[in-house]
Amino acid sequence: MEIRKIRMEDADNYLDMLLNLDNETKFMMFEPGERPTDINIIKNIIEKSINGDDLVLVATDEESIVGFISVQKGEYKRIKHTGYVVVGIREKYRGKGIGSKLFSELDIWAIENKITRLELSVICSNTIAKHLYEKNGFEVEGIRKNAMIIDGKYVDEFSMAKIYNS
């Protein structure tokens, strides 16, 4: 298992992993078949990571990407110190410490890039992910009521953040 920054040659593998995640969990944004499959969108995301504007780290098992963590940095002056985090791990690789390794690498990147606030949201019923985030320094700041619709029902999300002392 390797954790590393995404590379341009990962584009097809990364998209494939995301499409598989969409089918394996209801805790991510996209429903099966909803995610855009234009490889140029993925290449643009990778380009921003390579250039240092944002971050995408991948977890690999031999040739396959099995998980990721991404951060979209605040674009405007007043929020340049912030980053919005998304994380996903393929079903058969969960519970093996990959999430903690991804967050450990994220901490290094955040400090190097003068990020003092990381934010994420998690569906309230996703207790395993919430525990991972809390274990890695995130705290619940509030609840977003009716944040998503899953299986025709409204679900709430926790808004969570991690603050780095500057």
Rank of each mutant, 00 (worst) to 15 (best):
E2C: 10
E2G: 07
R4M: 08
K5S: 10
K5P: 02
R7N: 11
M8Q: 08
M8Y: 12
D10P: 04
D10S: 05
L15S: 02
L15W: 05
L18E: 04
L19I: 14
N23V: 05
E24H: 09
K26E: 14
K26A: 10
F27T: 06
F27W: 11
M29R: 11
E31Q: 13
P32C: 06
G33S: 06
R35P: 02
P36Q: 04
D38A: 09
I42Q: 01
I45M: 13
E47Q: 15
K48E: 10
N51C: 10
N51M: 11
D53E: 15
D53T: 15
L55P: 02
L57P: 01
L57T: 06
A59P: 02
E62K: 15
E63G: 03
E63Q: 14
E63A: 12
I65E: 01
F68D: 12
F68P: 00
F68E: 13
I69N: 02
V71G: 07
V71M: 08
Q72M: 12
Q72D: 09
Q72C: 07
K73R: 15
R78N: 06
R78P: 00
T82C: 04
K92M: 04
G95Y: 02
G97I: 06
G97S: 10
G99V: 04
S100F: 11
K101T: 07
K101P: 04
L102C: 09
F103N: 03
S104E: 15
S104M: 12
L106E: 04
D107V: 09
I108H: 14
I108G: 11
I108K: 15
A110G: 06
A110S: 13
I111G: 05
E112I: 07
E112Y: 09
N113M: 08
I115M: 05
I115V: 13
I115W: 03
R117V: 07
R117M: 12
L118T: 05
E119K: 13
L120K: 02
V122L: 07
T127H: 10
T127E: 11
A129T: 02
K130L: 02
H131Y: 11
Y133K: 06
N136P: 04
F138L: 10
E139R: 15
E141K: 14
G142Q: 08
I143Q: 03
R144W: 08
R144I: 14
N146I: 04
A147H: 14
I149P: 07
Y154D: 08
Y154G: 08
V155S: 03
D156A: 12
E157I: 07
S159C: 09
S159H: 11
Y164R: 09
N165T: 14
N165K: 15
S166E: 13
